[in-house]
Design a protein around this nucleic acid. Structure first.
Length: 476
DNA sequence: AACGGAAAAC
DNA sequence: GTTTTCCGTT
């Protein structure tokens, strides 16, 4: 079947507002599990929803770290169905796909909590930022409590990772770090995807993307966060820092989420947890809690970050290091990692993530809310919603059943808006030591100081290329 | 609701 | 390899 679905249409070429790599590398959006496949993966889609404020009523972080609740299973399924052009998608099927992730260790089910699952962020982060030297950077490793206290070591085996992200650079440099220039063959050949890792692009403590890349919504952080998120920015946690497209923007206002709010923008959170020295001992364990409101600060302003709730019981013990260390050992550090001598404390600046929140009550209505029922105001469209499925071919002529089925389940809207709130972070997090997250925290700073004051706002493209070349040399 | 086998589809 | 579809079981 030929599906002209948005998932295809909205992939690159991307509008200028999309600053490739700022959010996260494009390969994250098109895992090439099968040749030619650029289908978004379900877990990725979930993350996207999770970080979009307008879907709080549909799906939201809740409970333990990495835990999320599907508040409106039918709606999530519907959206997923839309994205995949599967008009007959329903929660039963979607959840089956979710179950598929159990073995992959991407997700697991929080037992006893309806529609509640938990992300294994150590894996997700890792596979999306393979440059991260897990062996040298303990920052990601605290997610081992994904295993919920069991003695089971996290499955960070190369095999497992590779199975998740076939493009992981486990075999030569053919991995995600290099642009093959498929679309526009470059005379330089493969080039390091600096754009994918802006924080790697320079030894300089601070740099900003060229304004030209920022579109009409220039940010002015001293540092471009890999997820396009700067916790130091005022309002950073209100999500208002993420460019909203004006009406009439060439960036379609419909389905595909703004990569600047990229789904994985939530990933830094694990780091923030590690910056939290307090880190109350004792993992509550996803399965232990009896409801998903653990730590939810009732009354706190809702921040719709792409962030999982703050890990209240983040374990900081040695065991948390085992997985990553093991990974480093077993993996032998992928070429792009140790080879570059980059011991990344990736995204540590994001440790500050979670500071406070946006304007209370600023939350837009969820699509389901708009559609009526418990929800209100069936008006306007949303970023993710498309109303026209005409381009989606169907298996049969029963497309009309789609909306019917999708509506059949009773809404379980948990706690409504309150439920989607983020646990308090501001008060518990130490203030950023340095505006440069890596500078202050990275164990091994890339010896790139000789590079030009890289990527100053006015840096010419060819200069970036020079840098690229330099890095390539370093790499080899 | 949640799980997982099986097979087909992609 | 991932997701969809179907379905029996817990």
């Amino acid at each position: 079947m030929d599906c002209n679905c948005v998932s295809d249409l909205l992939l690159p070429p991307v509008p200028t507002l999309w600053t490739p790599g700022i959010a996260f590398p494009d390969w994250a959006y098109k895992p090439e599990s099968s040749p030619g496949s650029r289908q978004i993966q379900l877990w990725h889609f979930i993350l996207e929803l999770l970080q979009k404020e307008e879907y709080q009523g549909v799906i939201a972080w809740q409970g333990d770290y990495g835990e999320f609740v599907i508040k409106d299973p039918d709606e999530v399924a519907r959206l997923w169905g839309i994205r995949k052009c599967k008009p007959h998608m329903n929660y039963d099927k979607l959840s089956r796909a979710l179950r598929y992730y159990y073995n992959k260790r991407i997700l697991h089910k929080t037992k006893g909590k309806r529609f509640t699952y938990k992300f294994n962020f150590s894996k997700v982060v890792l596979v999306n930022y393979p440059l991260l030297d897990m062996a040298n950077s303990p920052f990601l490793l605290a997610q081992n409590h994904f295993t919920n206290g069991s003695s089971t070591a996290p499955d960070c085996s190369p095999e497992a990772l590779q199975s998740l992200f076939p493009r992981l650079p486990d075999s030569g440099r053919a991995g995600s770090l290099f642009d093959r220039g498929a679309t526009a063959p470059s005379p330089e050949g493969d080039k390091l995807r600096l754009d994918a890792f802006p924080f790697l692009s320079s030894g300089a403590p601070c740099y900003s993307k060229p304004p030209s890349l920022l579109g009409p919504y220039p940010r002015s952080p001293p540092f471009d966060y890999p997820w396009g998120f700067n916790p130091y920015l005022p309002g950073a946690f209100s999500l208002n820092n993420c460019p909203k497209l004006p009406p009439g923007s060439l960036y379609p206002s419909h389905f595909y989420p703004n990569p600047l709010q990229g789904g994985l923008s939530g990933l830094p959170h694990p780091f923030s947890s590690l910056l939290h020295p307090g880190g109350e001992a004792g993992d509550r364990g996803g399965t232990g809690a009896t409801n998903g409101t653990a730590g939810g600060p009732a009354g706190a302003p809702a921040a719709r970050l792409g962030l999982p709730p703050y890990p209240l019981g983040m374990s900081m013990g040695r065991t948390d290091l085992v997985g990553g260390a093991a990974l480093g050992a077993r993996e032998g550090s992928p070429p792009g990692v140790g080879g570059l001598g980059i011991g990344l404390g990736l995204g540590l600046g994001l440790g500050a993530v979670g500071l406070a929140a946006g304007p209370p009550g600023a939350r837009p209505q969820s699509p389901s809310e708009r559609r009526g029922g418990v929800k209100q105001d069936p008006e306007s469209d949303s970023d993710l919603e498309i109303t026209d499925l005409s381009d989606c071919s169907s298996d049969n002529d029963n497309d009309h059943e789609f909306s019917k089925t999708a509506r059949s389940r009773s809404q379980i809207l948990l706690e409504g808006k309150k439920g989607a709130m983020m646990p308090p972070l501001a008060s518990s997090l130490p203030p950023p030591m340095s505006p440069h997250p890596l500078k202050s925290l990275v164990p091994l700073t890339p010896p790139l100081a000789s590079l030009p004051p890289a990527l100053s706002p006015s840096l010419a493209l060819h200069e970036r290329h020079r840098e690229t070349e330099t890095l390539k040399m370093i790499h080899s």
